[in-house]
Design a protein around this nucleic acid. Structure first.
Length: 201
DNA sequence: GTGCAGATGCGCT
DNA sequence: GCGCATCTGCACT
């Protein structure tokens, strides 16, 4: 067992989402330890959320994982080429999850640079470094997370989320979610949570 | 820094 | 067959 107790995820998605900020995504691949501090997430509450794959409890082969127990990874392919990592939340039967949208690289940058750009970290441009893991597809590419990990509990040595929290001077900001313009009233839900620096007085 | 087009494959109607 | 919980590269301000 590694990382957070899976009971952490078995609560209301809108409580878990901000609690994930500052925590650390951990992945071990090819003997390399990759870690990143979570700085942006989005909540998806299937029962009431037209932006969610599982809206109105829609059960399909794809959404099956979201109905499962909390603390499991929900990984899917979007736009034919990018993977997205979510953590399943709420009790089994409630199809909810939190999308990990961005992390700040901590350990294993060399390996992340290889997975993202096929180059050494030292050979990257400033913008490539800034864009290493600042989007859901980028996080999955940098951490080598594919659909093989769909449905896997987030308590594996090689794949889990470790404790962490806010630093002094940081705060949580809420905003509208990205890429769900079709979701009618749900486009206005403030279900995106980002970690920001406190404004100067 | 912003804005657009195109890539790409699967899930679902 | 349509539409994505996206990213990149290139144009331009």
């Amino acid at each position: 067992m590694s990382g957070l107790d899976l009971a952490f995820y078995g609560r209301d998605t809108l409580e878990v989402a901000p609690d994930l900020l500052g925590k650390v995504l951990v992945r071990v691949v090819a003997g390399r330890r990759l870690t990143g501090r979570i700085v942006e997430v989005e909540a998806y509450k299937g029962p009431v959320d037209k932006g969610a794959h599982s809206y109105n409890y829609r059960r399909t082969p794809r959404t099956r994982t979201m109905f499962g127990p909390p603390g499991h990874a929900y990984v899917y392919l979007v736009y034919g080429m990018h993977h997205c990592l979510n953590a399943v939340t709420e009790p089994e039967g409630e199809p909810c999850a939190i999308l990990i949208r961005a992390v700040e690289p901590l350990e294993g940058r060399e390996t992340m640079a290889r997975f993202r750009y096929g180059k050494d970290w030292d050979d990257l441009t400033a913008s490539q470094r800034r864009n290493m893991t600042n989007g859901p597809g980028k996080v999955c590419q940098a951490f080598s997370i594919t659909r093989e990990w769909n449905g896997v509990p987030l308590d594996r040595e090689e794949f889990h989320i470790a404790p962490g929290g806010l630093e002094p001077g940081e705060r949580v900001l809420r905003s509208r979610r990205i890429g769900i313009d079709y979701a009618e009233e749900a486009v206005d839900f403030l279900w995106r949570f980002t970690l920001e620096e406190e404004e100067e007085a």
